[in-house]
Amino acid sequence: MKSIELFAGAGGLGMGVSRAGFTPEAVIEWDRWCCDTIRENRTDGLGLVGDWPEPIEGDVRSVDFRAHEGKIDLVTGGPPCQPFSLGGKHRAHLDSRDMWPEAVRAVRETKPRAFIFENVKGLTRETFATYFSHIVLQMTYPELVAESDEGWESHLRRLEKHHTGRRGPRGLEYRVVPRSLNAANYGIPQRRERVIFVGFRADLDIKWAFPLETHSLEALLWDQENGDYWDRHKVRNADRKVGDRHSERAARLDVKPKTAPWRTTRDAIGDLPDPEHESRKAANHNNHRFQPGARSYPGHTGSPLDEPAKTLKAGVHGVPGGENMLLRPDGSVRYFTVRESARLQTFPDNFRFHGAWSETMRQLGNAVPVELANIIARSVKRHLTLGGSDFLK
């Protein structure tokens, strides 16, 4: 099946989609460092982007998608999230970086059978509720385009009237399902909450729901209290800490949960050599180099080893702010290396990042976990292949 990847970044979403069986016909990204990362991994033949075309480096607003009309099964991407991020200025539709209209245009011009878009959880905040509705209705009716002199609120009203009063031929229409997901609940070793929008073209009549969650905090607590978590990781008794903030929750558990345990930071990076004290061994791993200068202060305390990592971040509230850190059992902190961060985002170990530490951490902080993307894309592909039968999950 064929796809188009918009706002590709370092390739997390697109790689998960490719692993699900989609072949990208076009990959668009404006940032040169991200494009360099994709190019480097295309040429070595080791990563998941070996069959990707040369990325189109530039502004998506200058790309004409009409040549792909009717030839694409899936359009995916993460429109720039700064307008909605907690670390941004919260301007939403007033922000020139809001690329949702371009995502809708790509759908309108290619008419794919389905799409997957993602954004930060901040998009679901009450402040943006009305604009959230505008996004969903634009994706539902991508041919109902705003006029040149029409503000977004007037466009929303027209979309609402069309949605409630449509008669006769519908034109291009999608059935859109948005959901806020915590990546940890799908086996990602990071508490990363994102909003995912999945849409299927209405004429396909596909019945779809998000995949069931497979992992839980309760199962992790059970594994740490009653299972073999500590023995599996060869952790001595003195360092076995479930965490005071979860102690009451753990005490209430009297039956083993049916889900799998949340994956922890230790699960993800425990087999890597310490980059600070084992630098020679660490040098044998791609992008695994110690970065000095980490410090803890209120609001920036790092990620405990035996829980999923906190959300990796990009920008002034991420790397310079000091949140992308490991919190050791003895209370000390250090920055995650690029390789450790890539593990937390479920990038493969043979995937190399281009640029300085701060630049590559920005790429990772903006990425979608590869495995989360793959889980969703596999479900979408299964339904596109077999149709919308109720037996599909």
Rank of each mutant, 00 (worst) to 15 (best):
S379Q: 09
W357T: 04
L372V: 06
H277G: 10
R343A: 08
L94T: 13
L312Y: 05
K241N: 11
G58F: 05
L384T: 05
A268M: 03
G88Q: 07
G365D: 03
P320V: 13
S96Y: 09
L159G: 05
H246F: 12
V338E: 02
R113P: 01
G293W: 10
R175K: 10
N284V: 08
S148K: 10
N287I: 08
F391L: 15
T164D: 14
A367C: 06
S18I: 05
D267V: 09
K71V: 00
V120G: 11
L221P: 01
S216C: 13
K281L: 11
M99E: 04
A184L: 08
Q363S: 00
M325C: 11
K207G: 14
R362Q: 13
L326S: 05
E143S: 09
A250N: 11
D149L: 11
K161W: 12
R167Q: 14
A129K: 15
G302I: 04
G365L: 02
G165R: 14
R362E: 08
R175N: 07
G302F: 04
R91A: 15
R352Y: 07
A209V: 09
R166K: 14
G355M: 03
Y174W: 04
K256Q: 14
L144D: 07
G47A: 14
A8M: 06
T264E: 05
R263I: 06
Y297F: 14
F336G: 06
A114K: 02
S358K: 08
Q82M: 10
L253I: 15
R245L: 12
A8T: 04
T127G: 01
L217K: 15
M139V: 13
G365V: 00
L204T: 03
A309I: 01
M139I: 12
R289T: 10
V17G: 03
G321V: 01
V316F: 13
P275R: 09
Q363K: 05
R125G: 11
C34F: 05
Q82A: 12
C81S: 10
E57Q: 13
C35R: 02
A342Q: 00
A268V: 02
L272D: 08
E193Y: 12
E213P: 12
I28R: 03
G315A: 05
A129D: 11
T385H: 09
S303A: 09
A67L: 02
P273E: 02
V380K: 01
I375N: 00
L253P: 10
D98W: 04
K234G: 13
A314E: 07
H155W: 06
R201Y: 00
